[in-house]
Design a binder for these strands. Structure first.
Lengths: 141, 141
DNA sequence: TTATATAGTTTTATCAAACTAACTATTATA
DNA sequence: TATAATAGTTAGTTTGATAAAACTATATAA
């Protein structure tokens, strides 16, 4: 079979795998949260001190949308905002300890899946996989 | 760095890539449709003659949900249903020519992305990538 | 100092997608 | 033949995500 067709199918499989990978989060201890919420939490964890406007730009979503989502997370004691001293219009967003805990559980779910993958791939395959993903990532952007 | 950590990061990148891969559909000619609708169309295309109950089981969603979604697609002249001769409770679902056209456009968007990927990976890498995905797929299920 | 710009919030409304429950039509079975 | 089960529909509701527009508070520039 030609490589293009095979790759089309592989990408479909991959979409399916990633969908399952993500939906695993919605069971267990994290099922109280939506994928969207977990994504906001991940974003704040990755970019400590990020603000509403930046999130809005990153996700291509209006500020009002982000504001509501973040205030919901603040209400759930998952996120806190700290007003800037130098410019009081700004609030930098941080995870609370509860938020960090959620992030840890989130990572753990992923790690568990990754352990399964590590069992079935040999080290060379893992290396290749990582290299290929990075190569694709760089080029697509 | 240890392989587990690297793989965790790679899977994150991959999630991001797939997200972009899918969201490409939402621009251009297909932006009139939701990802969910395109997914129903894909499913019917893959399993010609599938019915509402089977879709319901496949997607782990109530029959009523599927019924409404499918009737919406029928209203848009994307899907048709044909009542079974042997058991009139059953309706087999098919794509109309419009539906097939949407499917072709859908495939084209994916093929265009795949062409980009093929340009930056050498044939061995493509082979490895496909093999690895299949290996993961089989094991995770 | 007045006008303008920026960060974030609130209100109101819309939409997609999912659910439950009750329904019709048809088929299978006791 | 009366009763069960099955396929699909309909009505009504809930939830989550989104946006537009008007707002407050603060900072900057003319």
């Amino acid at each position: 079979m030609n490589q293009e067709l095979e790759l089309v199918e592989a990408m479909d499989e991959l979409s399916e795998l990633i969908r399952k990978f993500q939906n695993q989060l919605l069971s267990g201890e994290l099922k109280a949260y939506t994928l969207r919420q977990l994504y906001y939490i991940e974003l704040i964890n990755k970019q400590q001190g990020i603000n509403v406007s930046e999130i809005s730009k990153t996700l291509h979503v209006k500020k009002s949308t982000v504001s509501i989502a973040i205030n919901q997370l603040i209400g759930l004691d998952i996120v806190t905002k700290i007003q800037s001293d130098t410019d009081k219009r700004f609030y930098s967003l941080q995870l609370t300890s509860k938020g960090e805990n959620i992030m840890k559980m989130h990572m753990q779910v992923h790690k568990d899946t990754i352990k399964k993958i590590l069992k079935i791939l040999n080290p060379d395959e893992v290396d290749n996989f990582i290299k290929i993903i990075n190569k694709i990532k760089v080029s697509i952007l």
